[in-house]
């Protein structure tokens, strides 16, 4: 009797799990039949970002420094009012080709100052930024907290393309078909803006790039809206991973070496095993 129990315990345990799964499955199927999952607004209207090509893409991608400088100007003149860049330091801007003196000036002139605590007075004050400071945090009184942008292109799927599509996606409207299902999208709630690239479709950020020439480019590039948006996306790829070029270059050397080593080890393997059938 006990040995029969021990022999069949596997079937009992297996049977128990399968029975419970069958009951769960029955419930799920019934659920789908009686309450078919409703079409969601996100499913109907959300769009994946349009493809964007940048110089930093691909195995050998390198940053386009002039584009990064333009992108930095867009960030400085437009985005920085609301979004911080707190993982980046002013000194890092030297990577973009700015000189020490230029970096110093950028830091000093930066609109948001560094908070300092006066120990004696017990009060908070401010001082100008210096190159060794991180970009200061931005305190934003409006609805929603604008995210820090340092890592934004890594923190979203297909990040650079996402930023570009989001910034240029404010003109799109829900389709007539979508509005039939979700009439509430005919009018965007106050303080919100429809944007099909944003996960929730309605975004609190007002369109930041509104007219050509909004940012003063000094390198002769025409500052159209798509151009500014692409430039700032490229800049944010750099802020998310300033070491990207080193990574690509090191990767090439490492792979080159390993492929060479693969030939050697394959040769060693063949010669060691020569004459031994296996």
């Amino acid at each position: 009797m006990t040995s029969l129990f021990i022999k069949s315990i596997k079937f009992l345990v297996g049977g128990a799990f399968i029975l419970v799964l069958a009951i769960a499955l029955f419930g799920s199927v019934k659920g789908v039949i009686y309450e078919p999952p409703a079409e969601t607004a996100e499913h109907m209207m959300h769009k994946h970002p349009e493809p964007l090509k940048l110089a930093s893409d691909g195995l050998l991608g390198k940053f386009d420094r002039r584009q990064l400088q333009r992108g930095f100007l867009v960030y400085k003149d437009v985005c920085s009012t609301c979004h911080s860049l707190n993982l980046v330091s002013f000194r890092n801007l030297k990577d973009l080709g700015y000189t020490d003196a230029e970096v110093k000036k950028i830091a000093k002139d930066w609109g948001t100052k560094q908070p300092v605590f006066d120990e004696k007075g017990g009060t908070w004050g401010e001082r100008d930024n210096v190159p060794s400071d991180r970009f200061p945090k931005v305190y934003y009184p409006g609805t929603g907290t604008p995210p820090d942008l340092s890592l934004i292109t890594k923190a979203r799927h297909n990040g650079a393309a996402y930023v570009h599509s989001l910034l240029t996606g404010y003109n799109e409207k829900p389709s007539a078909e979508a509005l039939k299902h979700f009439p509430e999208f005919a009018k965007t709630p106050d303080g919100m803006h429809f944007n099909p690239y944003f996960a929730n479709l309605n975004i609190a950020m007002p369109p930041p790039l509104t007219q050509d020439g909004q940012v003063n480019y000094s390198d002769g590039t025409r500052a159209t809206i798509p151009q500014m948006s692409e430039d700032v996306a490229a800049f944010l790829v750099w802020t998310a991973e300033p070491t990207l070029e080193t990574r690509h270059a090191a990767g090439l050397a490492v792979l080159g070496f390993l492929i060479f080593a693969a030939f050697l080890t394959y040769g060693a393997y063949r010669s060691v095993w020569a004459g031994v059938k296996h």
């Binding site: 792979l255 390993l258 492929i259 060693a268 393997y269 060691v272």
Partner: peptide
Amino acid sequence: AKDGLGVVVFLIAFS
């Protein structure tokens, strides 16, 4: 010898 080859191929995928 055979594992050596395997390790190099592994390192290629890893890199």
